[in-house]
Simulated assay, not measured.
Amino acid sequence: MSLNILGYDVGGTKISTVVGNDSGEILSNVRMPTVKHLGKKRLIEEMITMGDAALKKAHVEKPDLIGIIFAGPVDRNRGVVIASPNIFGLSNFNIVEPIRDYYRTDTFLENDAQAAAIAERLFGSGRNVDNFVYMTLSTGIGGGIFINGKLYRGAHGMAGEIGHNVIMVNGPTCGCGRRGCLEALAGGKAIARRVIENLRAVRDSDFFSKLRPNEITAEKVFEGKKQGDMFSQLILEETIYYLAVGLVNIINTLDPELVIIGGGISKAGKDLFDPLNDAVKEEFKSMYRPFKIVPGLENGSDLAAISVPLYTEMELHGEGEKQY
């Protein structure tokens, strides 16, 4: 008999709620834009309303397990959001307790990037790979690491913050406060910022001169390259170089079999992965070793939310991983 799982993804641009099962099938989903001033009480009210709606759509009366993934640092053992970069007023907030009490169901919390790595382990390219790194390449850059078949969380549960490795000393200031982080150079927000900062190039570009500053995104840069815009080409070449430097640092440190890249920017497909593979090979210099860089799951964010309780239950009960 399959398990029905209610999953929440509380992210920077949207809050999504899904109902899925332990075979990785998504039965329903409900989404709403993230509101920065939502607050604790309203957030829980919205989550419960969305959860009830998703369960009704899936014809599920009560979930067997619940997963919550959050875009920001969390204390998974206490069910607490440590800091909230996207929704104000949620720092040191126990997000698990009210959801668990309402549904009377075991509820588990995880950082969104680590949850995506778990989804890859259970349902994606990491299924039969014991040592891999997952990178989410979106507005920011995060990650999750599997070592010898187990998610590596570190001493404080905060391992995998690969976006905050400095790759340019005295580079642009990152949201974390340091300068020259990978995220501050190659995250989606950083790509858009680098375009906007080059005002002369923007004015001279047929593609970008038609866009308002708030319309410039990383996705638009890839679109500009496809249309032959040379400025887009230069911005992407820089971005690929920064990503290659960051990835080679990670690969040299951890020696994974595989690097999986997900997140919105990964949807650029061959326009991202072909030059990135070439750049990484070049950046290895004499330290080259076999490696693969592959795209993440198409529906990774939905599967991440339902994967967290499945994987946590295995950890709690000391069970070997099932092959989903």
Rank of each mutant, 00 (worst) to 15 (best):
M1D: 15
N4L: 12
N4T: 14
N4C: 11
Y8Q: 04
Y8T: 01
G11K: 04
G12I: 03
G12Q: 00
T13M: 02
T13W: 01
I15G: 06
S16E: 15
V18S: 04
S28P: 11
V30P: 00
V30K: 02
G39A: 13
R42D: 15
G51M: 11
A54I: 13
L55F: 14
L55S: 13
L65W: 10
L65Y: 15
I66T: 13
I68N: 00
I69W: 00
P85L: 03
I87W: 10
G89K: 13
F93M: 06
N94C: 13
I95T: 06
V96G: 03
T105P: 05
D106F: 12
A115V: 12
A115N: 11
A116H: 07
A119G: 09
R121C: 08
G124M: 04
V129F: 05
D130P: 02
D130M: 11
V133R: 00
M135E: 12
M135H: 10
L137M: 08
S138N: 13
I141L: 04
G142N: 04
I145L: 15
I145T: 02
N148M: 07
N148S: 14
G149Y: 10
L151P: 03
R153T: 15
A159E: 05
G160T: 10
N165Q: 12
V166D: 07
I167H: 08
V169Q: 13
C176P: 14
L182C: 14
A184G: 03
A186R: 08
K189P: 01
I191G: 07
R203V: 08
K210G: 04
T217I: 08
V221Y: 01
F222Y: 14
K225M: 08
M230A: 06
F231C: 01
S232Q: 02
I240K: 00
I240W: 01
A244G: 00
V245L: 10
V245W: 05
N252Y: 03
L254W: 08
L254H: 04
L254A: 00
L258V: 02
I260M: 09
I260A: 06
S266K: 04
G269H: 09
D271T: 12
D271H: 11
D274M: 03
D274S: 12
N277Y: 02
N277C: 07
G300A: 05
A304T: 02
V308M: 04
P309M: 06
E313P: 00
M314R: 12
